[in-house]
Design a protein around this nucleic acid. Structure first.
Length: 606
RNA sequence: GCCCCCGUAGCUCAAUGGACAGAGCAACUGCCUUCUAAGCAGGAGGUUGUGGGUUCGAAUCCCGCCGGGGGCGCCA
């Protein structure tokens, strides 16, 4: 936001150092950690170290030398438009803005840009973010929710940072797990169908758990039990074979049950305000992936061991001549000719780049699949796929329950839908006592916004590579560093504006000059607001919604402090009141923008 | 055996080469006849798992060790 001044000073520093034969290191600008005044700073430690290496002032310790240089530089800069004063402290050069100018610029720019405040300049690249890849014939649990929330927030960040963005979902609609559910349904539950989208979806999960129990080898099985289990297993394999061969009745059963799951998935994505642009399905890349395997065999990359009862494999390490195992050997086709997860990802990459013309492809998938993606991307490279290096696996930690890993087979899962309902229930209980003024009809909607805000924030305020132990009381907490805390700041800002008959949309409350003595709370708030654009870029570049989540809290925190300490409507001075109203409108806007990037709703009342 | 991730306050997490390692929760002290107390203000809490190394400077980078988790030929 203040590149012009920064550039000007940078030029002056360079000029000075050149004239005085000082080996200036690259200038890294950062904000000054102390609150109270705005500015930016740079240090001269590296430059001082450079000088020491050249034998100049070798006796002087680096920090002291850095301070000397900072002092000299400071003396040379003179006055710069918009800059109040400049200090040399502890080896740093601190450049301070004129308070009233800075405040006015931040507030004016925020109100002028509105929902676009912080948006990055358009960039030429198109980025595809693939997330929301639950398996069908299961139900959507809290682990899928983390994946979806992370992917959605990332997509919003990348898009807002200026990239053309395509959101892709890739449900796993085939494989042994899917067939397992179909097998038990066909054998024991044929014709049954629970009422309700979610009931039906969740029922399939129960069938899966039941089927797995039947098919699992038990200790101390009687010969009869073993025979029965082996019979079931043969039936399941046979069904898979029939699916693969395109048997009409099996395909029909598959289509029906698959739709049940997909309906549930679409409903959940709507709750999360996720709008997928492109739907890929494993079943659609199944056939194309097999021809890729043929090609791999022809090119001598893959080895076909099917004649000896083996699968088709790629000995990646061996082909690359690696001494240590790294990529290992990957199976790309079963001995019965059916494809695998890995096989399908080869075909999917091709579709993404060739059909959708993306420049970069991000796969949001938990860290346990790291080897899978390393293998997939490496095989693509060996195959001669030029965009292999543009594929990036965004790995994140997985979600477990306090009692251990979630397990669909054991029926030990925290279903998203149930957590969501519980969240809304808890908010409603709080609303009953605190929000008497909200009409009953509106309360429910707000309750789900706040409840979801808590849940979403708890997922995004942990860095990607950290596992989450899902504790419902912590995830749905409304106090402290939480989603509702940030939403509440938005609500309070709105409350002031409402009482003054000003909204952020009609921000026309007259011009303001901020030429009075600003309180430290106002200064801190404006400081936070001004950082939003760079936080957007950082979060998008690092693929880390956490950066935005942490920022949103800091911003809300600054607003709450301001709200408490600084009167707005009660201010006597009209000029001050006008300026503060504009500040509140601007702050509300930035909070809303930040929440939007986190896929959290910003209600006006709560 | 090989590879990946994690280890920071009692607990959950920030800080990714720079200024005194910061928040929240829990516990403690104050603040609602004043724009919503889902809030604010304050004190307390640390040998950043451990031993070396690189650097003017390391929670951060490199090597070793310890502890926890995950992955490693026909699951997804």
């Amino acid at each position: 936001m203040f590149q012009k001044e920064q550039q000007l000073i940078e030029d002056k520093i360079k000029e000075f150092c050149q004239a005085n034969d000082i080996a200036l290191a690259e200038l890294k600008w950062q904000s000054i950690p102390f609150a109270g005044e705005w500015g930016f700073s740079t240090s001269f430690f590296q430059t001082a170290a450079n000088e020491a290496k050249r034998g100049k002032g070798a006796q002087v310790p680096v920090p002291q030398k850095a301070q000397e240089i900072a002092k000299q530089v400071r003396g040379q800069i003179g006055s710069v438009e918009g800059i109040g004063h400049i200090e040399a402290v502890k080896g740093y050069l601190n450049v301070y803005f004129k308070t009233s100018d800075y405040a006015r610029r931040v507030v004016d720019e925020t109100l002028a840009s509105g929902a676009d405040f912080g948006r990055g300049a358009p960039k030429a690249e198109t980025v595809m973010v693939e997330y929301a890849q639950p398996n069908t014939h299961h139900s959507f649990h809290i682990g899928h929710a983390r994946n979806t929330i992370l992917g959605e927030s990332l997509a919003r960040l990348v898009e807002f940072a200026g990239f053309k963005t395509i959101r892709a979902s890739y449900p796993g609609d085939l494989g042994l797990g899917v067939i397992t559910v179909m097998w038990i349904y066909d054998k024991f539950y044929k014709g049954q169908e629970p009422e309700g989208v979610h009931e039906r979806g969740q029922w399939l999960l129960k069938l899966y758990a039941e089927a797995t129990a039947m098919l699992e080898k038990k200790e101390n099985e009687t010969p009869e039990e073993t025979a029965k289990r082996e019979g079931y297993e043969a039936e399941r394999r046979e069904m898979y074979r029939k699916w693969d061969a395109g048997d009409p009745s099996v395909r029909e059963l598959w289509k029906t049950t698959r739709d049940w799951s997909l309906e549930e998935l679409r409903d959940i994505l709507a709750m999360l305000d996720v709008n997928i642009d492109v739907w890929f399905y494993e079943s659609e890349v199944d056939e194309p992936s097999k021809s890729i395997v043929d090609e791999l065999i022809q090119k001598g990359i893959a080895e076909d061991e099917r004649a000896d009862g083996g699968p088709v494999i790629v000995k990646i390490d061996e082909k690359l001549g690696l001494a240590k195992e790294k990529y290992r050997t990957a199976v790309v086709l079963r001995n019965d000719g059916t494809s695998l997860y890995l096989t399908k990802d080869l075909a999917l990459a091709k579709v993404k780049f060739e059909q959708y013309h993306v420049d970069r492809s991000i796969y949001v998938v938990d860290f346990r699949q790291s080897l899978h993606f390393q293998q997939a991307f490496k095989i693509l490279e060996m195959w001669g796929f030029p965009q292999a290096e543009k594929c990036y696996h965004l790995s994140y930690g997985y979600v477990t329950l306090p009692e251990g890993a979630m397990s669909a087979r054991r029926g030990r899962v925290a279903l998203f839908k149930e957590v969501y309902a519980e969240a809304a229930r808890r908010v409603l209980a709080v609303e009953a006592e605190k929000s008497g003024n909200i009409p009953a009809g509106e309360r429910e909607k707000i309750a789900s916004q706040i409840g979801l805000g808590a849940l979403v924030y708890s997922m995004l305020s942990v860095d990607n590579n950290k596992d989450i132990v899902f504790n419902i009381d912590e995830a749905l907490s409304f106090d402290g560093r939480t989603g509702p805390y940030i939403q509440n700041a938005h609500v309070r800002a709105n409350s002031i504006l409402k009482k003054s008959n000003v909204t952020s949309q009609t921000s026309d409350v007259g011009r303001s000059t901020f030429d009075y003595d600003l309180t430290k709370q106002e200064i801190e708030l404006i400081e936070q607001m001004s950082q939003f654009p760079q936080k957007v870029q950082q979060a998008a570049e690092e693929y880390r919604p956490l950066v935005m989540a942490a920022y949103a809290y800091e911003l809300a925190n600054a607003f709450h402090s301001f709200y408490h300490a600084v009167p707005v409507l009660q201010t006597g001075d009209e000029n001050v009141k006008t300026a503060r109203l504009r500040l509140v409108a601007a702050a509300k806007q930035v909070i809303a923008n930040a929440l939007r990037l986190l896929d959290i709703q910003a209600p006006d009342v709560m």
